[in-house]
C-alpha cells in the first residue's frame, strides 16, 4: 500500500521538496537523498511529486506549471529520472556560486575534480578511483561557492549506464549486492556507500582539475592544460551560468589560474595505472610541474 513520503533536499544553497507516493516511499527517499539533508533556511524552489498513474506508469510532476510531466513505465527508471529532475531544479535556481557537471573524489582533504559531459566516463572513473583509495564525493555535480576554493559535492547513488554494468559489477566486486542496484532500462543506481566506506567529513579543497575522456579502442593520451585551456573546458560544463552576473566567467577563470589541470583520454584503467601516482598523488601537489612523461602517449 502506498503512502506519501516527503523530504526537503538541499544542495548548493537551494532546496527542492520531493514527494514520493509509492510503496516504500521513505526507503526510496533515503536511498536517493540521504546525504542531501534539507535545511529550513532555504524555502524550496519547487516541489516534485512521483506518483503511479491509474494505468500503472510512473509520473513526475512539478508544483509550478513549467514543463510537461515526465513519465516512464519502469519504477527504477522513475527513480533515476526523479534524481535528474531534482538536479535540474537545483541548477535552474542556484546563484551563489559555480555549479559544474563533474565527478569528484578526494584524498587528504584535497579534491580531484573531473569535469565532463555525460558519457565521458565520470561515474566509472570515480568508482575506480574510490577502489584505489580515494573518497567518493560525487559522480555528477560539484559546487564552488562564490570566492571559495572548497568544493561541495552532490553525494548520491552512482549512476552506471547499462553498457558498463557487467564490467562495473565485477570490477567493484559487488555481484552479491546486485539486487540492490535498482536496474533500469538505461542505467542502474549503485548505492554509493557500497563503493567506499569513507566519505569526506568536510568540503575538500580543489587540488586538481582532471578532464577525462573515455573512448573505446583508443591510445592513452595525457595532456597538461594551460589555465586558459582549462578555463575553456570548465565553462563548457558550468550548468548555472545564466544565474550568475557575469555567467561565472571571472570566478571560473580564477579557478583555472590557480589549479593545475590535465586531460586524459583512455580506453582502459590499465592506461591510467601507468601514470597513477604521478597524476593523482604527486599531481595533487601544487608544486608538481610535469606529472606524466610526454611519451605516455600510446601506452
Amino acid at each position: 500500500m502506498s503512502s506519501m513520503a516527503t523530504r526537503i533536499v538541499t544542495f548548493a544553497g537551494q532546496s527542492v521538496e520531493v514527494a514520493v507516493e509509492l510503496d516504500e516511499g521513505r526507503k526510496i527517499l533515503d536511498f536517493l537523498f540521504s546525504d542531501l539533508a534539507g535545511d529550513t533556511l532555504h524555502k524550496p524552489c519547487k516541489r516534485l511529486n512521483l506518483t503511479q498513474t491509474p494505468g500503472g506508469s510512473y509520473q513526475i510532476t512539478a508544483s509550478s506549471s513549467d514543463g510537461a510531466p515526465v513519465t516512464t513505465d519502469s519504477r527504477n527508471e522513475a527513480l533515476r529520472l526523479l534524481m535528474d529532475q531534482v538536479i535540474h531544479c537545483l541548477a535552474q535556481t542556484c546563484d551563489s556560486g559555480l555549479l559544474f557537471h563533474a565527478a569528484v573524489v578526494a584524498r587528504n582533504g584535497r579534491a580531484v575534480v573531473m569535469p565532463a559531459a555525460s558519457g565521458s566516463g565520470k561515474s566509472t572513473l570515480s568508482c575506480w578511483l574510490a577502489k584505489q583509495g580515494f573518497q567518493y564525493c560525487t559522480d555528477e555535480l560539484a559546487f564552488l561557492p562564490t570566492d571559495s576554493t572548497r568544493v561541495e559535492c552532490l553525494m548520491r547513488p552512482v549512476i552506471i549506464k547499462n553498457a558498463a554494468r557487467e564490467m562495473m559489477t565485477e570490477f567493484l566486486g559487488l555481484a552479491e549486492q546486485e539486487q540492490d542496484f535498482y536496474p533500469g532500462p538505461v542505467a542502474m543506481m549503485v548505492p554509493h556507500r557500497l563503493i567506499h566506506l569513507e566519505f569526506p567529513q568536510s568540503c575538500p579543497e580543489v587540488g586538481l582539475l582532471l578532464f577525462p575522456r573515455y573512448q573505446q579502442d583508443t591510445d592513452f593520451q595525457y595532456t597538461e592544460l594551460t589555465p586558459a585551456q582549462a578555463g575553456m573546458r570548465l565553462m563548457s560544463v558550468l550548468v548555472n551560468a545564466r544565474n550568475l552576473s557575469d555567467h561565472g566567467f571571472a570566478q571560473t577563470a580564477r579557478i583555472a589560474q590557480t589549479t593545475r589541470a590535465c586531460q586524459i583520454q583512455y580506453s582502459s584503467f590499465a592506461h591510467i595505472e601507468t601514470c597513477f601516482s604521478s597524476i593523482f598523488e604527486d599531481g595533487l601537489s601544487k608544486d608538481q610541474v610535469n606529472p606524466c612523461p610526454v611519451d605516455a602517449e600510446g601506452v
Binding site: 589555465p227 585551456q229 578555463g231 565553462m235 551560468a241 557575469d246 555567467h247 571571472a250 577563470a253
Partner: peptide, 19 residues
C-alpha cells in the same frame, strides 16, 4: 580573461567561450 599570454573570450549573449 588573459592568462599567461593566452586568452579566453566569453560572449554573454551567445553563451560561447573561445580560446
Amino acid at each position: 580573461q588573459e592568462m599567461d599570454g593566452e586568452m579566453l573570450l566569453y560572449h554573454t549573449a551567445e553563451v560561447t567561450t573561445t580560446y
